[in-house]
Design a protein around this nucleic acid. Sequence first.
DNA 1: CTCCCTCGAGTTCT
DNA 2: CTCGAGGGAG
Length: 808
Amino acid sequence: MTTNDLAARAHALRQQLTRYGHEYYVLDAPSVPDAEYDRLFRELQTLEQQHPQLKTADSPTLRVGGMPLPEFSQITHSVPMLSLGNAFSDMQQDDFARRHAELLQFDERIRRELAESPIRYATEPKFDGLAISLLYRDGVLVQAATRGDGITGENVTENIRTIHAIPLKLELAHPPTLLEVRGEVLMLKRDFERLNAEQLARGDKTFANPRNAAAGSLRQLDSRITAQRRLSFFAYAIAQVEGADWPLSHAGEMDWLQQLGFPVVAQDLRPVVEGAAGLAAYYESVLQRRATLPFEIDGVVYKVDSRAQQEELGFVSRAPRWAIAHKFPAEEALTLVEAIEEQVGRTGAITPVARLQPVFVGGVTVTNATLHNEDEVLRKDVRVGDTVIVRRAGDVIPEVVSVVLERRPMRPAAGGDLFSQGEEAQYPPYRLPSHCPVCGSHVVREAGEAIARCSGGLSCKAQRSQAIQHFAGRRMMDIDGLGERYIDKLVEYGYVHGVADLYRLTLDDLLQMKRRADEDEGVTPETVKAGKVASKWAENLLQAIAASRQPALARLLFALGIRHVGESTAKTLADWLGSLALIRRAPAALFAALPDIGGVVAQSLADFFAEANNEAALDALLHYVAPADEHPPSAKLGEQLDTAVLLARLAIPRLTEVRSQQLATQISGLEQLARMERRQLLLLQLPAEVVNALADWLDEAANRQALQQLAALRTEILSSLPQDTLTAHPLFDGKTFVLTGTLPTLSRDAAKALIEAAGGKVAGSVSKKTHFVVAGADAGSKLAKAQELGVAILDEASLQAMLQQTAD
DNA sequence: CTCCCTCGAGTTCT
DNA sequence: CTCGAGGGAG
């Protein structure tokens, strides 16, 4: 045969095999016997082996897998893979009425948002597998990635190619130049059972459930192993299309995907329904059919069918508002409470935990279940020795649902006479200990709080260890290799008392600590190899500690573990105030002037830095660590230092937002107020009770002094602010925009990003505070509301024009 | 004052 | 993932 003939033969074989494969794996209707398929497959394999130039990226021979990878590479999703919200509460299987009520509520919310009725919903089962993104360029599968954290996932292209149900090439004369398909990889129940039987016969470990089997199979670095596992796939969404028309509805997308050769769930399992009644009927019918389905599902999904309506609803943080998961009631099991013990958290929170007789539920063996807090234990009246119903809440976290009272161990009532039949429980109701189980300090429960806390602070070993653990965490100082176990030991043996001590650790310290820890735990005596492993570990750890010495300011702030200050608040502080020095000096009112920081968080910050121990620990830490990105306060801070704003943040009794504004107009500044006497205050045009409260407040020397300090700090900050206002766009700065309808070229997110970059804010709904409404095609109620309120209305062109008018 | 949303904190198992 | 609490909008 000539080269051309060979190429033609290879091409023909590929086409034939792809078609047979599709018939077999997707349509479940093979037209040729397996032997025939195998014969053609081997012919193509041989041909490609002998003539490597004939290999293609879409050849069915790729389905057998290739060389093992050293590791999966990371892939950034260009369209984030979001998770679905769940607006429904857990309930019993048979609680139709409550379920229906919740569906009505959900449907009503959507109708209100869209100002339309009835709403058409596309439905589908919620597969219990792994979400995957598939990228096709010019019709050829070029990349497959796991969901990961939604932003970045792992590159599993080789493994995905071995899944026969996934087309390697779209059979179209003119495929889209770009297509990103989302779907779920899973293992059918029958394939799972077969796999486990094989594993058992081979003496390999079996998988707890099909989901774990699918995950374990897909995450093989050796794709040849993946190829031997029978994985299936169902497509359920399109994330990107270029070079083809994007269907206008979800149902349309699904039909198109099916035409393109993707397996999608059978049509009768994904009806388009109307309103709450349609959703309810769908839910109940799928629940009925659940056991007979060939794959595991953990609920159903409802999606607003119209893509225009989807765009209008948009997103909240990382979940679309137009799609929602409705989970089935979780599987439940009975087990025995062997003990109730308490854990002490980083902030001293005392959490009761039920130690359970191990029980297999929802795919794993559960031995512990949190009881959250004292009230929760008492409400459920869980006691030692009780038989309880447990389940995995959201199919993840074990939870005690209720006690089976009939099975509570009893004994005859004490003091009962011969005639009384009285019995009493062997164990009394649960009581939270009055002293910390770790350090013995008093346990305090603030009025109105659900959580009791150990008052020991950092003198409590549990809190100290966990403070250090928090400090070292990935999103904080990111010290790799410093796990819980070693931190506990470092604290226990006295190598580390506070976070600064980490930076003083030597190689010897670490090796000594490890040796002692191993001895304490009866780990086998040292070998030469173990010694090498240990010193490698210690070196890596020292390197990781050294690498953490120039953190971003926000990370350092988060790492300090200040109550109520998490990742997001830490970032706000770093962005607005810029330097640790300023943050350490700032009074509560300054914190409270920042966005999303209110009185409680502000006070918590001020308290932290006012505490001498914390200041000392911070000073010690700063011998070794320096934030790498300190800068002057943000230019935006200037507006927040407005006299009226600061007055309102001082938490002066009776001085409301409105009164603060009135007061601000009558004084020249905070300095003046700080000097005013009661008789001068009486001249202010404010209600008498406000003036009195203000005067009383100023009578406290500490308050007056705090006000003076705030005034001085304000002046100082204002003079240090960058003078240029280059970031602020005059037409956008401080203005609120609302987007509605579909813009001709900009996506919703792109428009939002542009407005925010120019200093504007984008809100979800129109109110009298809205400055501009940007309306596109099919704009709905928001446009009407804007017209009603007389809010300025822009189209995309005028928005762009406004953006163009920069500082000229 | 009352929603509604976001953020913080705690948690399990592999 | 879920709960509770804090913050802000209406």
